[in-house]
């Protein structure tokens, strides 16, 4: 009973905050500010048991073989599974990462590896991936290859993707992951998970830490 009431109060407070956050009137007073700190929580989930980096050898946007573990060893690495014929979440996620990355120093940008693995390899050829990623950030590594291999790689980091299939109109329906996994340059382990709710600001705040393998 107590707990429930408290939860309701917290929700109310959060709601009030949401409202005030949108308005231009800056009337935040003491208690609201306190709640503000609680609500601006970490976007990242820090994993108690980090993931091993997926053992994927795929084809990059130049058509060359790319061994994920070998190429990204010792580097801060962000991995996302998506597809280019995706109007909403895939480009949003990748653009969020790309915009946040630009806030890093040039050296850190060059150190960071952002890897986009297609979940729709039939349509996402190396050329198609390359063209799409060029519109987002040419430094992003785009990988394509055998779907079963990609699916297994995704599954190894807790991401479920289904094979593309045709709907009744003959249109291809693909699935994307909703998470971005960050891998530490110190351990090469996937230690942070971001949901598709993570914003540019979240990544901007966290990337400098990720580059160092620290918790945000």
């Amino acid at each position: 009973m107590r707990k429930k009431t408290f939860a309701a109060a917290a929700l109310l407070a959060a709601a009030t905050l949401t409202l005030s956050a949108c308005g231009s009137g800056d009337k935040a007073e003491g208690p609201v500010t306190v709640v503000s700190e609680e609500t601006s929580q970490q976007a990242a989930t820090v994993l108690d048991q980090p993931f091993e980096k997926p053992d994927l050898v795929l084809t990059d946007t130049r058509g060359k073989s790319y061994d994920l573990r070998k190429e990204t060893a010792g580097r801060p690495t962000l991995i996302y599974f998506g597809y280019t014929n995706c109007p909403d979440i895939c480009p949003l996620t990748m653009n969020n990462l790309a915009v946040a990355k630009k806030q890093l120093s040039k050296a850190d940008q060059d150190e960071l590896r952002i890897v986009f693995v297609t979940t729709d390899p039939e349509r996402d050829t190396p050329a198609a991936l390359g063209a799409w990623l060029k519109g987002i950030d040419p430094q992003v590594v785009g990988l394509t290859g055998d779907f079963a291999t990609i699916q297994a790689g995704a599954r190894s980091v807790g991401i479920t993707v289904e094979a593309p299939h045709k709907d009744k109109n003959g249109k291809t329906v693909s699935t994307h992951g909703t998470q971005v996994i960050a891998f530490s340059p110190k351990t090469d382990a996937g230690y942070l998970v971001y949901s598709d709710q993570a914003t540019v600001d979240d990544y901007t705040k966290d990337l400098p830490k990720i580059v160092k393998g620290q918790n945000p």
Binding site: M1, K4, T5, A7, A8, A9, L11, L12, A14, A15, T16, T18, L19, C22
Partner: peptide, 21 residues
């Protein structure tokens, strides 16, 4: 009462989301 409170809170939240940004 608890459920009612939770519901009320949910409704307020919903209303504000509607007002949105």
């Amino acid at each position: 009462p608890g459920t009612a409170a939770a519901m009320a809170a949910g409704m307020v939240f919903g209303a504000l989301t509607l007002a949105g940004c």
